[in-house]
């Protein structure tokens, strides 16, 4: 127990910031991935039948990318 308490005391603030930034980018990345999964597969499905939907499909698929961009912004603000 003593060792753990000592470790908390000596934890480098820069390191905590780095962990926070990492979590911000990592978790938002996963979230966009989950959101894009269904949109992407739907876009592929629509494109398989009608190729002219490529542009629309692509745009709709990358819309959840905003989530990870916010994460990146937060990460930059933290560090």
């Amino acid at each position: 127990m003593v060792d753990a308490a000592a470790a908390v005391v000596y934890m480098d603030p820069a390191g905590l910031k780095a962990i926070g930034a990492g979590l911000a980018v990592g978790l938002t990345g996963l979230a966009s991935g989950i959101a894009e999964r269904d949109i992407g597969s739907a876009a592929i499905g629509a494109m398989a039948e009608n190729e002219s939907l490529f542009g629309k499909g692509l745009i709709l698929t990358v819309i959840p990318e905003t989530i990870v961009i916010f994460g990146l912004v937060v990460a930059l603000l933290i560090s």
Partner: peptide
């Protein structure tokens, strides 16, 4: 895979 099939079916 509902998303894929329904989108494809709608295009069809």
């Amino acid at each position: 895979n509902y998303a894929y099939v329904t989108a494809r079916v709608r295009a069809m």
